[in-house]
Structure formats: structure tokens, C-alpha cells
Computed example of a mutant assay.
Amino acid sequence: MSEDKKKSIMDYDTVALDEENHALVIIDQTKLPYNTEILSLTKQEDIWSAIYLLQVRGAPAIGVAAAIGIYLAAREIEASDFEEFYQKFRKAKDYLDSARPTAVNLSWALKRMEGIVLDNKDKPVAEIVEELHKEAVKIREEDIWVCKTIGEYGLTLVNPGDGLLTHCNAGQLATVKYGTATAPMYLGQERGYHFRIFSDETRPLLQGARLTSFELKESGLDVTVICDNMSASVMRKGWVNAVFVGCDRVAANGDTANKIGTSMVALAAKRYGVPMYICAPTSTIDLNTPTGKEIHIEERPASEVVEMWYEKPMAPEGVKVFNPAFDVTDHDLIAGIVTEYGIAREPYSESLKEIFRRKQEALKDE
């Protein structure tokens, strides 16, 4: 673990593979913005904990971390034949997959890595492990392209000087680079758009205040932190021209699960005529989940609400606390879902299938 206050947060890789030491390297996001601590993780228990405890967070970053993590697990497997290797691989995969139930990128990345194992089952175990290594690196590199492309599509939806609002952190700290919801903001910054950004604080874990405002400010963007319950006020004043948020899962009908409070932003945006855009890599789209009702919503400890940010508990001892980590935004509140293969619009049951058709065509041409 190391600490360096001279470098900007944007100079660090959110998620990386240390080839020399065979380690998953992440920024410990629970320590931001006060301390930049870099964790080098080699044990599966530590990687699982890092995902569960939100030391690495954001659906794309979790997917990349999972791919690297399962590759590192495969390196440690001792097996005399493929069947023994695969049995131990599945055990390690299921263990990592249990860390976060809502973010589909976790299971997506692990399934993709499992596919590499099965596609190479006739090869020696050492070669299978090397194929896993290549795939983990590929998944990380793909994330950079995906986010930049989402940013390009997102930029077509706004104009220079616009006010943009975002909730939680779907920025570079949630991906390898650019972010999803922040990708249009960063590309706009490079091209002189001079956006005005409003960042919801995002209770109870304050990712918007601690992370989004931190990375945007470090990058020179005009960012203002607001409490979650202020979003309607800034929209009513006409200060917001569009809302960009990320998500952890998109259902087949266009319902999306994102950090708790997103649905309230969507309702306010609908009331004030502000378009709400979901920035979602295709890896986050789950066509096997029909609607938002079927998305499992993770519930987290009460301490995050009543104790985490306070010297003394801010609620009566023993009071009941409900702490869902995510909520579902209904598809009719969403103006568009921005992916790396285009922008899906209503009816999402059809347009999301078209997005995947484009993806398959693109993959055939590679």
C-alpha cells in the first residue's frame, strides 16, 4: 500500500493488473477524497472483500476487477487434468460472484472468463491460464474504448454551456478511464464545451460528494455539489439541461437499477422536462431479466446510514433502518439508454435487441 499526495487522482489507474507481482491493483475508494491509497491484492478473500466493501466500485470497474481476480485465482489452482481444474475454477468463480448481487458486470465478466476455460478445454492447464490472462487484459482495454464511445454518443445529446446533473459516481473512478455518465463531460471538457455540472451527494455513502466532485474538480470541470433533495430545485430554476447517470443493470424492458436515489432524480426530471439518459455498456444490459421487478436489490448494513459519517450515531439507538443500495428507474422515465453501439429509445424491448444486433455485426467484422 502506498500514498502519494502529489499526483492527481486522474493519474492513477482505477483497476489494473500488476504483471510482475501477479496482483490486482486498485484505488481504495473508501478513503477518498482525503487519502489516495493504492491496494495490491493477491488473495481471493481480499479481492472479494474489496468488491463487497466498495473499495473497488462501479459496475464496469467491478467487472474488470473480477476478470483480473479470477485469472489470479486460476494461476493458483493445482490440478492434474481439466476436470479438476474446472471444478476448482468454478468454485473460485462462484465465490467472487457472491460479492455483489446487483451489478451485472460482475457475473458478466466471470461468465466470459468461464467461457474462455470451456473454449480451451482441450489445451494444457498452463495454456488455459494464459488464455485467461489475455482475456482479463482484453476486458480492461475494451472498457476504455466502451466508455469513450459512450461519451461520443452522449455528447450528441447536449450543447456547449449546458447544465448537466449526475447522481452517484459513474466516472473514471467507476471504470478504467472516462467513466460512463461522465464520459460526455470529459470529452466536452477536451473540446471546450464548458459544461456546468451538478453532482448529487448520493447518500448514504456520498459517492457523488466524495468521488464525482473530486475527480471532476481535479480535471478542471465546473462542478457544484448539491444534496440529493436539491435536484428538483435546480431543475425548476432551469439550470439543468440533461441528466446523465450510470447503472448497474438494465432489464429487457429498459428499467434500470442504479444507486439509491436515482429514481427520485428521474421523477423530478420528468416533471420539469429534463431528459434523463442512462449511460450503460452493453455488458450492463441483461436481456434475461424481463423488468426491474426481477432485479435483486442489495440491502446493506444500517451503520452506513446512522454511523459511518458521524462522530456519534445520528439516530436513536435501536431504531429500524432500511438501506437498499439501489433503486429501479422505470423505463418510461428514461429518454434514452446510451451504449457503445448507439442510443436505445422506447420501446426498449425492441431497441435494446437492435443494440445487440449491431454489436454482433461489429464483432463479426473484427
Rank of each mutant, 00 (worst) to 15 (best):
K5I: 09
S8D: 07
I9L: 00
D11N: 11
D13A: 09
A16R: 10
A16N: 12
D18M: 03
D18R: 01
N35I: 15
L41Q: 04
K43Q: 14
K43A: 11
I47H: 07
Y52C: 11
L54E: 05
R57S: 13
R57C: 09
G63A: 11
A65P: 00
A67Y: 04
A73T: 08
R75T: 12
E76S: 10
S80D: 15
F82P: 06
K93L: 11
T102S: 04
L106K: 01
V117T: 03
E130Y: 08
E131D: 09
V137T: 08
K138S: 09
D143T: 12
W145A: 15
V146G: 03
V146F: 04
G151K: 00
V158Y: 07
P160T: 12
D162R: 10
G163F: 07
T166M: 06
G171K: 05
Q172Y: 11
L173E: 11
L173C: 06
V176H: 15
K177S: 14
A181F: 02
L187E: 14
L187Q: 12
G188R: 01
G192S: 09
G192D: 13
G192P: 05
F195N: 08
T202Y: 02
P204T: 02
R210C: 06
T212Q: 12
T212G: 09
S213N: 08
K217H: 12
D222A: 04
V225I: 14
V225L: 04
I226M: 06
C227Q: 11
D228S: 03
A232H: 12
V234H: 06
M235H: 05
V250N: 03
A252P: 02
T256I: 14
G261P: 00
G261Q: 09
L267R: 13
Y277N: 00
I295E: 07
R300M: 04
A302I: 04
E307A: 06
E311S: 03
G318S: 07
G318W: 07
K320Y: 10
F322G: 07
A325S: 05
D327C: 10
G336D: 07
I337L: 09
I343G: 01
A344L: 07
A344T: 06
E354F: 12
E361P: 00
A362P: 02
L363N: 07
D365M: 13
